[in-house]
Amino acid sequence: MKTISASEIRRRLTALIKTCLVVPDREVTKKLSSLVGDTPAALAAAKLIAENNVIAETTNAFCCQDTGQAVFFVKLGDGVFCDGLREAIELATRDAYADARKSVADPLTRLNSGDNTPPIIETELVKGDVLEISFLAKGAGSENMTKLYMLTPADGRDGIIRSVVAAVEAGGRNACPPLVVGVGIGGVSETACALAKKALLRPLGAHNEREDVKSLEIELLKRINALGIGVAALGGKTTALAVNAEVCPTHIGMLPVAVNLQCHSVRHGTVKF
């Protein structure tokens, strides 16, 4: 049994979150700086976003004012012991968001929690002495555009493509494009939703290892970029930078498909213990 101290988790997660909230994925900035052939307004927006990301890093300013609700994906091995793991994640959230925006409120009273807690924690149990914690800052603009489709097996691959493209067409303009499109396929309803979000953690440009899923990702990206939404919804061919799909076996009578849109402020990272 490997023991990991809660204080180390708190300290390292706090550092990770703070960095993520200021510096979005550098690959996105690189891509935005080198776009060609989009509409003049979209190219101007791409230039402004790239400029924004440089200002954020050089002045230590939050790249987006919506510093999000903190989402964590915890891969927890059965050979790991940590006394106070949940509390460490909560305290790291509170510490790291001390000067960020407090964006978490009661859903009915709308009373703000005041410290951006509670975080959302998704746990995956695995074998061995592994502990990996990934952080994802999820803002409302993109998260509000999430879709869940409970398709039937007869809908198949075509149904998946229709649904994902429809989700981007309906919500892409509000989700701060260019997007990373997360797609979760299979499991039960919440499995698909969690997979769609987890898919966003993948490095930009990396495909699913399964060839059939990779080919689906490539086709989806092509179809989405034919929608003409473009950077900042100002038209052109750069609506999404990537489509990341994850799959899980499902019931013989089901085909759940969830779509989670990630704005261009791609803010995530992973700490391994």
């Binding site: 402004l48 400029e51 924004n52 300013a61 790249c63 100002l234 402020s265």
Partner: peptide
């Protein structure tokens, strides 16, 4: 007017 979503550090300036 549409402002550029996610360009918050730029707008701060």
């Amino acid at each position: 007017f549409s402002a550029i979503g996610g360009a918050a550090a730029l707008y701060k300036s």
